[in-house]
């Protein structure tokens, strides 16, 4: 048995070509790549003013913070509930407006339905909507309509429109073209082709996307308040600035519970549609 294996080994060494050797250029390239990575990491460390020692030096503060957070204070729970409802309202209207705008924009940015120049134009516009974060839009709209939930709604609306239009158009581009041709064959208009041929096919996916964006928008809406866009984030920001850590903790717990519940419910509903 050993002899046989040995034979096989010898045969292999006789007939097999030499194993491949990594060329010198490739090895050099890898070395340079590693060096560049290290340089970037070190430079970013100083740029970000990373200072772990500070966590030790200020350990007293951290302890106070931690202790207060472990004793959540729900005395003003009704205020928080109202603020949370405001956050949900912001997310609802931000999403609804985005979906309403996203339907035509999504169809107009689908290559298989709209003319090329239109697709190009609408897509670039939607790229811009997506590229800028909700928080930045919130700051812009606060300057325009003042502090409060309406600025938050507008911020979510613009950013989400960009996202929803892209998701919607991708669903449209994946449809079966046959039903559309069926409508075209009857002498229907372009809009009728979309309504009777495209929409029935994409509707389940669209509903699912819209619900998913609503989940994300509830999360985003909690943050929007911090820059002044209304809702629970605003309340949270006030408590933190007043060093009311126990109350801040209560608010956070509420946010976590609400967001988790909504995620679960929305996920259930979405599963029904796919």
């Amino acid at each position: 048995m050993f002899a046989a294996a040995d034979d096989a080994h010898r045969t292999a060494t006789r007939t097999m070509p030499a194993p491949p050797v990594t060329p010198l250029t490739t090895r050099l390239f890898r070395l340079v790549l590693a060096a560049v990575t290290v340089v970037i990491l070190v430079a970013a460390w100083y740029e970000a003013e990373m200072n772990p020692a500070q966590l030790w030096r200020d350990s007293g503060n951290m302890a106070t913070l931690g202790a207060d957070f472990l004793r959540p204070d729900f005395t003003d729970w009704d205020v928080y509930v109202n603020a949370m409802l405001e956050t949900l309202a912001i997310a609802i209207w931000g999403t609804v407006l985005a979906v309403i705008a996203g339907i035509p924009l999504g169809i107009l940015s689908a290559e298989n339905v709209a003319p090329h120049w239109m697709v190009f134009t609408v897509r670039r516009l939607m790229d811009a909507c997506r590229a800028i974060n909700e928080l930045v839009f919130a700051l812009i709209f606060i300057a325009a309509v003042g502090l409060g939930p309406f600025a938050g709604v507008l911020a979510l609306f613009i950013h989400t429109t960009g996202v929803v239009a892209k998701l919607f158009s991708e669903a449209v581009e994946a449809i079966d073209p046959a039903p559309v041709e069926g409508i075209r064959g009857t002498g229907g208009t372009w809009l009728q082709e979309v309504i009777y041929g495209v929409l029935p096919q994409v509707m389940p996916l669209w509903i699912s996307y819209a619900l998913y964006r609503f989940e994300s928008n509830v999360r985003s809406a909690t943050v929007l308040g911090i820059v002044g866009g209304g809702g629970i984030g605003m309340t949270f920001n006030e408590t933190m600035r007043g060093f009311l850590y126990s109350q801040a903790s209560a608010i956070l717990i509420m946010v976590v519970i609400t967001v988790s519940l909504l995620d679960m419910v929305s996920q259930r509903i979405r599963k029904k549609f796919i």
């Binding site: 041709e181 069926g182 409508i183 064959g185 029935p200 096919q201």
Partner: peptide, 21 residues
């Protein structure tokens, strides 16, 4: 062309119906 299409009925191999309607 829509005027011409009105009186041309089309029947396809894969039916070309909107399945969810």
């Amino acid at each position: 062309v829509r005027t011409a299409r009105r009186h041309i009925g089309l029947v396809f191999q894969q039916f070309a119906l909107s399945g969810r309607l």
